[in-house]
């Protein structure tokens, strides 16, 4: 029930931000569409299982700040190597081990790897991630486990 109310609130905020018209007719149409979406979500049975992970919300901003810094640095690295040309890159496939226990933690870790340019998660089997990297150096950075440790901290 708590998740249902939260979903309705999110949808209402989204609708208000996108509309910009606040006449009675428009607002009632908005209420009807929100009710319809919540009803469909109930029928699909996705609500109450896959909702906003409440216990993570407080720790997320610090992690996001760190991730944005990381994205910035790796972007500049990849752009540098684009201009330096094909001889300067060393593409490599490598398997790395993730230490997260829950699926959510693994998903956050894999998405963070894919989001930083220069490394892409290609396949996941259990806790082994197959990662393709543009540079051997960036896979070394991943293996040193800084990102892994931060995601595991986030999870607990």
């Amino acid at each position: 029930m708590r998740h249902t109310i939260l979903l309705s609130l999110y949808l209402a905020a989204f609708w208000l931000a996108n509309s910009g018209h606040y006449s009675a007719l428009m607002l009632s149409l908005g209420v009807i569409s929100i009710a319809l979406v919540v009803f469909i979500a109930h029928r699909m049975d996705v609500i109450d299982h896959e909702a906003q992970p409440l216990h993570l919300t407080l720790k997320l901003p610090a992690y996001f700040a760190w991730l944005i810094k990381e994205i910035f640095v790796s972007n500049l690295l990849v752009v540098k190597h684009i201009w330096l040309g094909n001889k300067s890159i060393s593409p490599v496939f490598m398997t790395i081990t993730a230490s997260q226990k829950t699926e959510l933690g693994k998903v956050i870790y894999a998405n963070s790897i894919s989001l930083t340019p220069g490394t892409v998660t290609v396949n996941i089997e259990g806790d082994k991630f197959l990662v393709h990297a543009l540079l051997t150096q960036s896979i070394k950075d991943l293996e040193s486990g800084d990102m892994d440790r931060r995601v595991t901290q986030l999870e607990n």
Binding site: I71, F72, V78, I89, P91, S114, T116, G118, V120, H132
Partner: peptide
């Protein structure tokens, strides 16, 4: 030169 490396180039345009 190949598909996977091109993917990193696209990653640059899609994030930063």
């Amino acid at each position: 030169p190949d598909f996977y490396t091109r993917m990193h180039a696209v990653g640059v345009t899609e994030t930063l």
